[in-house]
């Protein structure tokens, strides 16, 4: 095979495009894990829900409201989907996860696994497993941009840029603002933070809601690229788990960087040896477990 600079770079850029999804999702997992101490198995299903809110908002919301001409456009979906799914997340936290706080963390994993099955099962019943196309990509983002070394689809470039903005603002809020310092303190010692008069339970609820909203946001971004299908979440979540094991969930920046890097590595593998591209992240996980079991950014426990 010819390993020209162009083919490598184009695959790496496409890989970066996947990488931003890994980054947003593993960031959400890390934020939730930090404060709630649970692995949010339902994260993939929430990502899928985000994509469906966008799709159904475009195709079905109008007829449902009796106004067949009404379509929820892409930009509105980028706001509405995270809000809807974020509220759902808040509901999940308030009604279910809260009851499990005093039990083993594994129960949180099992509960969210059950929720993931429910959501995925419901959508499998009403929608095509092979997926539906989302055609509401805004015209501004049609076409390609010349990056100097390659022509890159405008939409994908937008996805990379907006995702990086979202990731780094989340990082900034958590690591550099007062609100973030409360969050981090809550991660370290919730009882002490409560004693200072900070409403920790509310903070936990909102954090979970934000994590859910992030997943939905990624889902909307993904809708025009991948086909929207009920299994898109479960395929994603297992890879993201491997990303999280590689990076370690202790660090926000670690989650972002690991996600981006692994996306690019995956893209690069597509050029070098395509059949390995679906497993390369898992193989890297094996290597990391052998060499540095705590993960690249993990702290020694």
């Amino acid at each position: 095979m010819e390993l020209s600079f162009h083919t490598v770079m184009s695959q790496v850029m496409l890989g970066l495009n996947n990488g931003v999804f890994y980054a947003i999702l593993s960031l959400g997992l890390a934020v939730i894990f930090g404060l709630l101490n649970i692995v949010n198995f339902v994260h993939g299903a929430l990502y899928m829900l985000g994509a469906y809110v966008a799709l159904l908002g475009y195709t079905m919301l109008g007829p449902l409201l009796g106004k067949p001409d009404f379509h929820l456009n892409y930009w509105a979906a980028l706001v509405v989907a995270p809000l809807v799914v974020g509220l759902l997340g808040i509901g999940i936290e308030r009604t279910m996860l809260r009851r499990l706080r005093k039990f083993d963390h594994l129960y949180g994993l099992l509960l969210t696994f059950g929720l993931a099955l429910i959501i995925q099962g419901v959508f499998t019943n009403y929608f095509n497993v092979s997926g539906d196309a989302y055609d509401a990509k805004p015209e501004v983002l049609e076409g390609a941009v010349n990056l100097g070394f390659m022509l890159f689809p405008k939409y994908r470039l937008w996805v990379i840029v907006i995702s990086l903005v979202v990731c780094f603002s989340t990082w900034f809020v958590i690591e550099r603002t007062k609100l973030g310092s409360y969050l981090r303190a809550g991660t370290e010692n919730p009882e002490l933070v409560k004693a200072f008069g900070i409403n920790v339970p509310l903070m936990i609820t909102l954090t979970y809601g934000y994590g859910a909203a992030l997943a939905a946001f990624a889902g909307v971004l993904a809708a025009p690229i991948y086909s929207v299908s009920p299994v898109m979440g479960s395929e994603m979540i297992i890879t993201v788990f491997a990303v999280v094991v590689i990076g370690g969930m202790g660090s926000i920046m670690g989650a972002i960087i690991t996600g981006l890097l692994l996306g690019m590595v995956e893209g690069f593998t597509k050029v070098v040896y395509a059949p390995a591209s679906s497993t390369v992240i898992f193989l890297i996980m094996v290597l990391v477990l052998l060499i540095k079991p705590t993960g690249l950014f993990g702290k020694e426990s």
């Binding site: 009851r99 039990f103 099992l110 696994f113 059950g114 993931a116 429910i118 995925q120 099962g121």
Partner: peptide
């Protein structure tokens, strides 16, 4: 049919919440 996934998932949730 595939509603069984929903039932299995629901059983999980009920079991974890009420029936550990």
């Amino acid at each position: 049919g595939s509603w069984i996934t929903v039932i299995i998932g629901g059983t999980f949730v009920v079991c974890v919440l009420l029936f550990r």
